[in-house]
Simulated assay, not measured.
Amino acid sequence: MLVMLIVVPLVLGILQVALVMHVRNVTTAAAAEGARTQAALDAPPGAGEQRTRAQIDAGISDRFVREVTVSPATVAGAPGVEVRVVSEVPALGMLGPAFTVEVSGHAVSEVAP
Rank of each mutant, 00 (worst) to 15 (best):
V85F: 02
V81H: 01
V108W: 00
V7N: 02
V81L: 05
V85T: 01
V3H: 02
P113H: 03
V75Q: 02
M4N: 06
P72Q: 07
L2A: 14
P113L: 05
Q50C: 11
L2G: 12
T100W: 02
G80Q: 08
Q50T: 15
A91S: 10
Q50Y: 08
D62R: 12
A32V: 15
S71V: 15
V11T: 11
G77F: 11
V11Q: 02
G105K: 00
Q38P: 14
V8K: 01
R51K: 14
E102R: 04
D42I: 13
T28G: 10
R51L: 12
L10M: 14
G13Q: 04
P90R: 00
P90Y: 01
I14P: 05
N25K: 13
N25F: 13
T37A: 14
V26D: 01
G96V: 06
M1D: 06
I6G: 07
T52C: 14
Q55H: 10
M1G: 09
S109I: 04
P44M: 11
T52M: 09
A29D: 13
F99M: 07
A112H: 10
V7S: 05
R24L: 12
T37W: 00
P97R: 01
L19E: 10
A112R: 10
M1Q: 06
G46Q: 11
V23I: 14
A112P: 07
V68T: 09
G48C: 09
T28M: 09
R24T: 14
D62V: 15
A73F: 06
H106M: 11
R84H: 05
V7E: 02
M1A: 11
S71P: 08
V101A: 02
G105F: 00
H106W: 06
R53W: 08
T28R: 03
V83D: 00
V68R: 00
R36T: 13
E67K: 12
G80W: 06
P44Q: 09
A91R: 02
E67Y: 10
I6F: 11
D57E: 15
P113W: 03
T37N: 06
R24C: 08
S104H: 09
A39F: 03
A107S: 07
L92C: 04
V17S: 04
P44R: 05
V65H: 01
F99D: 06
A43G: 12
A107Q: 01
M94P: 03
V68D: 03
I56L: 10
L41R: 05
V75M: 06
V108E: 01
F64M: 04
D62T: 14
M1W: 06
T74E: 13
V3F: 08
R36F: 12
I60S: 04
G34V: 09
E110T: 06
M1F: 08
L12D: 07
G93S: 07
A35L: 09
V20L: 12
E88S: 09
S61M: 13
V20H: 03
E33Q: 15
F64V: 08
V20M: 11
R53L: 15
E82H: 07
G59W: 11
M4V: 15
V65K: 00
T100G: 01
I56P: 02
A32T: 15
V3M: 10
E110F: 04
P44Y: 09
A78W: 07
A40Q: 12
G34I: 08
F64Q: 00
G96S: 05
